[in-house]
Amino acid sequence: MSRPATHQPRLTGRRLIIGLPWLWLGLFFALPFLFVLKLSLSESVLAQPPYLDLLREFTDGVLVLAINLGNYQLLLDDSLYLKALLSSLQIATISTLLTLLLGYPMAYAIARAPRHWRLPLMMLIILPFWTSFLIRVYAWIGILKNNGLINQLLTGLGVIDSPLEMLHTPVAVYIGIVYSYLPFMVLPLYATLIRLDLTLLEAAADLGCRPWKQFLRITLPLSLPGVLAGAMLVFIPVMGEFVIPDLLGGPDTLMLGKLMWTEFFSNKDWPLASALAAVLLVVLIIPFMLLRHYEQRNLESSP
């Protein structure tokens, strides 16, 4: 492909439009991340602020730059961090699958509901956002605890004798995450399902395809972009989730977000917390890159 040789400074409007997101990304993502990266390479001390600057001193024209890889070394050495990463990955993956399993039928039902029903149903999905996230997670404590709503109901009905242990278990964490992140799955799914051309399903039926297979061969593949968008919207924030495992999880609920909080606020180890954050970002970016690569190849595959 040949590019025009002369530079065209005229297209300012277009440049501005392309430039704005980049500027935004630079200011609020790249720059803060650089700070975090710098912090992660510094040494932790008992001081205010609790770390030593990379640029240590500047004397006699000699700049002393101290890069401390010890934090990363520590992350590798102490198996706690690897365990936390794997446990976060596990929790995020399972919760993403659970929200997908729950959210897909919901989005599908709303998209296929009579037109005048769709808006009210969508409102019901979005409505919980109108209350504070924290309050909603707190409410689950009241529902799940030993003398909480569920246990009272079950003992009252005589189904169980002693209360079920639910709060501060992994189950409670999953309930909290799935409950909180469900709308992020339903919204993009609904958006792709509502755009699906229903004559495609008629065409499939006409070609001898039964309803269940129509779903598998037509609806599902064509809604994959929505599935991917929803999965990312759930997976990425859950990886760094702190509030839910802290409030609903037990002491053995290991998640990166919780660990970061502990390192940052309890242990005052800012550099280690930053190193954790940097690792988390890399872990999250890899699948994203793979996806982009795959999509690119998909577009170019056909001659």
């Binding site: 051309d197 004559t199 495609l200 008629e202 065409a203 499939a204 039926a205 006409d206 070609l207 001898g208 395809c209 039964r210 037509i218 593949p221 064509l222 056909s302």
Partner: peptide, 22 residues
């Protein structure tokens, strides 16, 4: 009888080709 059991095929006005298939 549902459409998928009729010995009939239809060519749709909008063609209704499956966009994700070759």
């Amino acid at each position: 009888v549902p459409p998928y059991e009729r010995p009939i095929n239809m060519m749709f006005q909008s063609y209704a080709l499956f966009p994700h298939m070759s």
